[in-house]
Design a protein around this nucleic acid. Structure first.
Length: 510
RNA sequence: CGGGGCGUGGCGCAGGCUGGUAGCGCGCUUGGUUUGGGACCAAGAGGUCGGAGGUUCGAAUCCUCUCGCCCCGACCA
């Protein structure tokens, strides 16, 4: 890593002198390498690029404990915006927030057989407290179904108590073997929604409703296109009847499960004895759902939109939407007071705007710095602009510069941010489409996984053995997308060649 | 958990083979000149070389163990 990085930087530094003179003021993607230091280019080492972006943009840093990371203010501000975007949508459907304990008694955890089996390998246990060994060890929650179900059993008595729609924002712990910042860490932040319903139909409706909320949030706010669908039985949540997911495609061609929604049926209700008296006088088990999204979505945003200059944040979730960089060469006070006035104006208009009036850095340094941090729009304001009542607007997504009149700047900025938001989505969507191909055989899957990667669309007979064979190629069935073709139009199974039962999306996944 | 790579001031690295008590660039501090794409000059501060043992008169360097990070695979959000 170090050697590759070093060589690249030397090369970039050498090239810089030659090209910098030629690249006058006009910014462009072609000039990328000249200005980027400290970030390994994507095509040299993608993983290193990712880690470099995380650290240089100060989103996170490694913590003293293996697999754990510190989410720094720049990263946490993103998460707060994600939370706001999702929380608002959850509440609009009647969901309320609550908080359940971190520690779960072993006996609770063991009740649902499939659930234990699925999570056992990655659970951390508390065995001592107050200097003494505990009589029953306590699991640090890897997910909260069990503790929440135990409470639902106490709270739910009548059909009039239903539905119960509760969500909690918290962190969970899963002892992972290989970790990467945001994508997979030992402890991670998430939300987990847990609902209880009167009928299976109502539970199923909620399961799909929540997946649709995730799809809407991820596509609208994070500008990441996704494939919504159902997980294969092998890939579903441990203890669920079935699981739905939204799958996104990262810019290295690997898929990332971005959120999941589970129909738990009455599996947990039966082992936790969550029964209600229905209007017909009979005792019935509730039907449940759970659904979650995590800080992994930050990793998705980095990998979908980021480039060799660093982070690119979609305006809708950007903690800072525009940064004003004053050029204070001469007439310092005039420029600065104009910049302050501009900041106030834009803030009053509702924009998240920052004025970088630090004296110790040159404008050029600030340009690079804010690009690395992914701020959607830069507003340059110099003596010439003050005279002509204008500013220079520079877009992070494509580097384009334009002059904008000081009057009506609010409208221009609004339109620019909107355009960046939709451009990012369209660009990602185009990438996903260009990296989605139809395959017919295992060999084709294998070749694709080892080659250009991306999504592979094919048919599947539904047998576990065939899914296992797909997994041996390094790819997995990401999901069975909604909107399946008519039974006769499903392609043949890529493994056994028998008539396909499902159209599936496969990919090498994170 | 297997295979590979790397741990040396805040960051990136050199030194290691051939042991002699640590150096470079960036950053940081102070002063000055600068400011439209990572400015310049001068003077400074900062390191028990990841950790623990061992070999040796002497260890960043050699040996053993250990911890961490990164990459590639198997499992997961």
């Amino acid at each position: 890593m170090a050697n590759a990085n070093d060589k690249v930087n030397q090369k970039a530094a050498a090239a810089a002198g030659a090209t910098r003179a030629a690249a006058t003021g006009a910014a462009g993607a072609a000039a990328d390498a000249d200005f980027v230091k400290e970030i390994t280019p994507k095509n040299v080492d993608y993983s290193q690029w990712y880690v470099d972006v995380v650290r240089k943009a100060e989103l996170a840093d490694y913590a003293p404990v293996k697999g754990c990371m510190v989410i720094r203010p720049a990263g946490y501000a993103l998460w707060e915006n994600y939370q706001a975007g999702m929380d608002r949508r959850f509440k609009a459907t009647g969901v309320q927030n609550a908080y359940f304990p971190l520690l779960i008694p072993e006996s609770f955890f063991k009740k649902e057989a499939e659930h234990v089996e699925g999570f056992a390998p990655e659970v951390a246990w508390v065995t001592h407290g107050g200097g003494e060994e505990l009589t029953e060890k306590l699991a640090i929650r890897p997910t909260s179904e069990t503790i929440i179900c135990s409470m639902y059993a106490k709270w739910i008595k009548s059909y009039r108590d239903l539905p119960v729609l509760i969500n909690q924002w918290c962190s969970v712990l899963r002892w992972e073997k290989a970790t990467r910042p945001f994508i997979r860490t030992t402890e991670f932040l998430w939300q987990e929604g847990h609902t209880a319903h009167r009928t299976p139909e109502e539970a199923e409706e909620r399961t799909q409703m929540m997946l649709e909320i995730y799809r809407d949030f991820v596509e609208s706010d994070l500008a990441i296109p996704v494939i919504p669908g159902r997980k294969s039985p092998q890939e579903k949540f441990a203890g669920a009847v079935h699981t739905y997911s939204i799958e996104a495609l990262m810019s290295d061609g690997r898929a990332l499960q971005s959120a999941t929604s589970h129909n738990l049926g009455d599996h947990f209700a039966k082992v936790f004895d969550i029964q209600y008296l229905d209007s017909d006088g009979s005792l019935k088990y509730v039907h449940q759902t759970s659904w979650g999204a995590t800080t992994r979505l930050i990793g998705a945003m980095i990998m979908v939109h980021g480039d060799d200059r660093g982070l690119v944040i979609p305006p809708k979730v950007a903690p800072t939407q525009a940064v004003i960089v004053p050029i204070m060469s001469k007439d310092r006070e005039t420029v600065l007071s104009k910049a302050r006035e501009l900041r106030r104006r834009l803030a009053e208009a509702g924009f998240l705007v920052h004025l970088d009036d630090r004296d110790e850095y040159t404008p050029g340094w600030k340009f690079n710095e804010w690009e690395m941090r992914g701020i959607p729009v830069r507003i340059e304001l110099g003596p010439r602009d003050v005279k002509s009542e204008q500013v220079v607007l520079v877009r992070r997504d494509n580097g384009k510069k334009e002059f904008a009149g000081m009057a009506g700047l609010e409208d221009t900025l609004r339109a620019t941010l909107d355009d960046i938001q939709s451009s990012l989505y369209l660009k990602a969507k185009r990438f996903m489409e260009e990296h989605t191909k139809t395959v017919r055989t295992l060999d084709e899957i294998k070749a694709t996984v080892e080659g250009e990667r991306g999504f592979m669309v094919t048919g599947w007979c539904g047998d576990d053995e065939c899914e296992d064979k797909i997994q041996e190629t390094g790819a997995t069935i990401r999901n069975i997308p909604f909107g399946q073709p008519a039974p006769g139009d499903v392609p043949a199974c890529a493994c056994c060649g028998k008539p396909g039962k499902y159209l599936i999306y496969c990919a090498r996944a994170y």
